[in-house]
Design a protein around this nucleic acid. Structure first.
Lengths: 141, 141
DNA sequence: TATAACTCTAGTAGTTTAGTAGAGTTTATT
DNA sequence: AATAAACTCTACTAAACTACTAGAGTTATA
C-alpha cells in the first residue's frame, strides 16, 4: 500500500495542476481543499521542495508553487521519494539494490525473475502516469 | 516490498516443488536448505497449513507436505495471505475495499484510475506466476 | 514593525516486522 | 509402556515505521 505521505503528495500536486495560474498557494488552502492534516502536509511540501519539484515564498502573500513541469512529474518519482523502491524484492530494485541475504544463486532464482518482470511493468506504468496526465484526465468531464 | 514471511513462504513452496516425491519434509530441513530461521519458518508453514496449501504429519517420520496442486498456487495467493491486498490504494482493492477517507469523489478521481489499472496489471502478472512455473523454469538449467 | 507564512526540531501513540523462547501435544517406533 | 521425534501454540521483544502533533524560530512584505 501507498503511504499517506505519497498519496497526499500526489493529491497536492494534482491540486496545483488544476489551478489557473502558478501563483503561490497557502498550505492551509491545500490542506482544507484536499482534507489533509495541515502540519503533516507542511512536512510533505517541504520534501517536495527539497526535491526541486516545488518552491516557496515566505512572508505575506507567500506560499508554495510548482517549478518542475507537471508533465515531467511521474507517480514513479513521487513514490520513490516517499515510499522508497517500487520493486518488491531488494534484488530487483534499480536504485537500492541489495542481494537477498538468504539467496543461494541470484542468477538462477525463478522467484527473482517473476519480481523483476513485475518491477519493469510497474515502473513503466508509473512513469507514464504523470501529474499532468491526471489533471487533463480529470478536466475532461 | 514483500515481507520476509511472504518471501520465505514462496521459497518453501518452491523447495517442495523440487522434491521427487511428496513425502513429509522436516521444517529443519527446509530452514537449513533455504537459510530461513527455523522458528520463524514454523509459523509460516502453520499458516500455509491453515490455508489448505500444506498439511502435516506429527510424530516420528512426520513433517510437512503439499496438498494443493503446485500449478494452482499463485504468487498472488501467497502475497494476499501474508501481506494483504496487492493494490496500492484501499479504494482499488478487491477483497479489502475501503474508501479513501479524504477523497471527494471516487468516480472522477484520476489518481484512483492510475492505481486501478496498475492493480489489474499486477494481479494478472502475479496470478500467472505459479509455484509450478517457477519450479519448471528453474529445472530448465 | 506587525504579521502572515514558511522552516525546523522534537516527540508520541500505535502498528508492523522479524524474530525468539519455551512449554505442550501427538504419534511412530522400540 | 516408554521414548523420542516432530509439529503446535502462546507469549514475548527489539527495532523500525507511520501518521501525526506541538511549538519555537525565521523570513519577507505591506
Amino acid at each position: 500500500m501507498l503511504s499517506k505521505r505519497a498519496k497526499y503528495a500526489i493529491k497536492a500536486l494534482v491540486y496545483f495542476g488544476h489551478k489557473e495560474d502558478n501563483s503561490p498557494v497557502l498550505i492551509s488552502q491545500i490542506a482544507q481543499s484536499e482534507n489533509i492534516p495541515q502540519k503533516f502536509l507542511e512536512a510533505i511540501l517541504l520534501i517536495l521542495k527539497k526535491e526541486g519539484i516545488l518552491d516557496s515564498k515566505k512572508g505575506r502573500g507567500g506560499g508554495y508553487y510548482v517549478v518542475k513541469p507537471l508533465e515531467e512529474i511521474s507517480f514513479a518519482e513521487i513514490l520513490r521519494i516517499f515510499d522508497g523502491p517500487i520493486a518488491l524484492l531488494p534484488c530487483v530494485t534499480h536504485d537500492y539494490y541489495k542481494q537477498c541475504e538468504e539467496c543461494k544463486d541470484e542468477a538462477t532464482c525463478g522467484i527473482r525473475k517473476v519480481f523483476l518482470q513485475l518491477r519493469n511493468i510497474t515502473v513503466k506504468h508509473l512513469k507514464d502516469a504523470t501529474i499532468m496526465n491526471v489533471v487533463l484526465d480529470e478536466s475532461e468531464k
